[in-house]
Design a protein around this nucleic acid. Structure first.
Length: 566
RNA sequence: CGGGGCGUGGCUCAGUCCGGUAGAGCGCGUGGUUUGGGACCAUGAGAUCGGAGGUUCGAAUCCUCUCGCCCCGACCA
């Protein structure tokens, strides 16, 4: 491809609305352009990279026994109603009506579509297992699109759905996907950290996320280097400092605490550390209030709490509800109460002694609060979020935190959709059996951004060989028409050899071309300049190395092939 | 949705506080000189100052409303 005939709008300056490195570089290198918030156009160069990534994904998915399909983007509301998600999904699902008032959703995910497809196509256990995937656009009315292509309202996802006759079959399929995902990201030149994860509102059990370590990551990971435990903070467990708490129980004492509401206030008022306090918060789980009690320094983990409660919707209650539920204004709730209300304790609470907590009375706290004597723990669960320094649940060592971008997610879905949508096959006895599902997603354009995020320097992008838009960035520096013609012949040779070459044939200064080449980041730069006219040698430079080497023009094709074979 | 910020040629930004002829750099067109790390000279095109309404003799600038975009918090690939 000749640059003079290509569309390559490189930018010297950072666009004002791009904040993170991948976004800046993708804009500057002319890979993408924003159409509006959360919607991006891919220019030819960017599309090439996207195609390389999807190519790798397809190869590995096919190798793992999955089959590619293409599903409609406009999905009939009937399927969503059948699964129940029409009523659960909330405003992130973009719903539209046609002229006749029929309802549709722009596919935010495709469990229903694939379950419906499989249901219409599969009838015997002999047809299973089946694992179908597509690479298609997803629409989600994100609360806040962010970071360019990393979080957008419209994005490309590879999503696969597997159907197995039983749990053992699913285990095999799931493991095949776990392996395929490692190969995919590896081949894309991405270092990923697989972590245990929460399966979210998709429903399901085992779940693994593939994270790319990055400062701009929206996820927090907890990692133990000693034993290799790695989990998303939504899911991460941590060891509590258990053991005998030998403190002598003090008497329960009521203290007047006017206006002392937050943990910070309490620390100042009582002059002791945060974990002396029992933080008591009222949540509404599917509309029903529940009091949640955790140590003062801990955050309630709403994912864990939601999983424990099995609720669809969980949020903090309105202040009025708190008053009605606990008998006191916000800031003075606590587990010591005459009222018969549902209370969930974090598993660390039972070991606390002489705690301080709200007395369910305005401007009043209790000190000397002790479990068993002052309140009975009927329900306890791990409902707090782990943090750096916490004890690894697997080996007892200490964990640290890392930020990550989620590029892939695999999980065992279970029977949620096959049951709801009545997908059954006949087993060998002619009896109806409901297959079990797995679900496997990869954010394709997010993967592209993650590759850029992970592979760049102060001059620009450094593409891994596997996803580079072109194999070679060929720069011609000619002063005369004869020289131009000679360089054109080299370009033709490269083309004829089947090499993907971007040929900078513009009438621009060498520095200008080199700067663009560095920005665009094709792994191999080949220059035809002085040396070429003096002794027929081309100059070869690898994007991630400093040194240059000269290669005779008639050896260049082998040189390139050798480079890409390595 | 709450909080913060920004909308001025294609891009980056100044001008707004304190109303008085719309600016710079980059990019783009043309002519010429250049050609190994974002060349130079000359010349030219390109802006309803996000939009609407108001105040004023006069508004990019002040007031009201509105739209868009970015950042920080709850969703997810």
């Amino acid at each position: 491809m000749r640059v003079s005939k290509y569309i390559l709008p490189t930018l010297k300056e950072n666009p004002s609305d791009a904040v993170v490195m991948s976004h800046r570089l993708m804009m500057r290198a002319g890979l993408i352009r924003k159409e509006s918030a959360g919607m991006y156009a891919y220019l030819p160069l960017g599309l090439r990279v996207l195609r390389k990534i999807t190519g790798i994904i397809k190869e590995e998915m096919d190798r793992a026994g999955a089959h590619e399909c293409l599903m409609p983007e406009l999905t009939n509301a009937d399927f969503w109603k059948e699964s129940g998600r029409w009523f659960i999904m909330g405003p992130e699902m973009i719903r539209i009506e046609d002229r006749n008032g029929l309802e549709y959703a722009l596919g935010p995910t495709h469990e229903e579509s694939f379950t419906n497809l499989v249901r219409s196509v599969v009838s015997s256990y002999r047809d299973l297992p089946v694992n179908l995937y597509q690479i298609n656009t997803k629409f989600r009315d994100e609360i806040r699109p962010r970071f360019g292509v990393i979080r957008s309202k419209e994005f490309i996802m590879k999503d696969a759905y597997s159907f197995d006759i039983d749990q053992a079959g699913l285990d095999i399929t799931y493991n095949a996907m776990a392996l395929a995902y490692r190969r995919i990201f590896d081949r894309c030149g991405l270092e990923t950290i697989p972590v245990q994860a929460d399966s979210g509102n998709m429903g399901g059990s085992a779940s693994e996320e593939f994270m790319v370590a990055s400062e701009v990551g929206e996820e927090t990971l907890l990692i133990c280097d000693k034993c290799g435990y790695r989990a998303n903070s939504e899911k991460a467990e941590y060891g509590r400092t258990t053991g005998m708490n030998e403190a002598v129980p003090e008497a329960l004492n009521e203290v007047h605490t006017p206006g002392v509401k937050t943990i910070d206030d309490l620390v100042k008022f009582f002059k002791c550390e945060e974990d002396r306090f029992l933080k008591s918060i009222v949540y509404a789980a599917d509309g029903k209030p529940v009091l949640v009690v955790v140590p003062g320094s801990r955050e309630v983990n709403e994912h864990k709490l939601n999983n424990y409660l099995g609720s669809h919707e969980l949020h903090l209650t309105a202040d009025e509800v708190v008053v009605e539920f606990t008998g006191a204004p916000v800031g003075f709730a606590g587990p010591v109460t005459e009222k018969n209300i549902r209370i969930i304790y974090d598993i660390s609470v039972k070991d606390m002694r002489n705690a301080i907590t709200g007395a369910n009375k305005k401007d009043t706290h209790y000190t000397g609060v002790n479990p068993v004597r002052d309140f009975i723990i009927k329900e306890e669960a791990d409902i707090t979020t782990a943090r750096a320094g916490d004890i690894c649940p697997a080996c007892g060592s200490h964990m640290y935190e890392k930020k990550g971008i989620e590029v892939g997610h695999i999980f065992k879905l279970g029977y949620k959709y096959t049951e709801a949508m009545k997908l059954t096959v006949l087993d060998e006895n002619g009896k109806g059996v409901t297959p079990i599902m797995g679900c496997y997603g990869i954010g394709v354009n997010r993967t592209m951004a993650a590759v850029v995020e992970q592979n760049n320097d102060e001059r620009g992008i450094i593409w891994p060989k596997s996803v580079t838009p072109f194999h070679v960035h060929f720069i011609g520096i000619a002063k005369t028409d004869e020289e131009t013609a000679a360089i054109d012949r080299i370009y033709d040779t490269l083309l004829d050899s089947g090499i993907d070459v971007l040929y900078d044939d513009r009438k621009a200064s060498p520095g200008f071309k080199f700067a663009d080449a560095d920005l665009i980041g094709i792994p191999l730069r080949i220059t035809a300049g002085k040396g070429f006219f003096a002794n027929g040698e081309l100059e070869v430079k690898e994007r991630d190395k400093k040194d240059l080497r000269n290669v005779p023009a008639d050896m260049i094709v082998e040189e390139i092939r050798r480079f890409y074979k390595e």
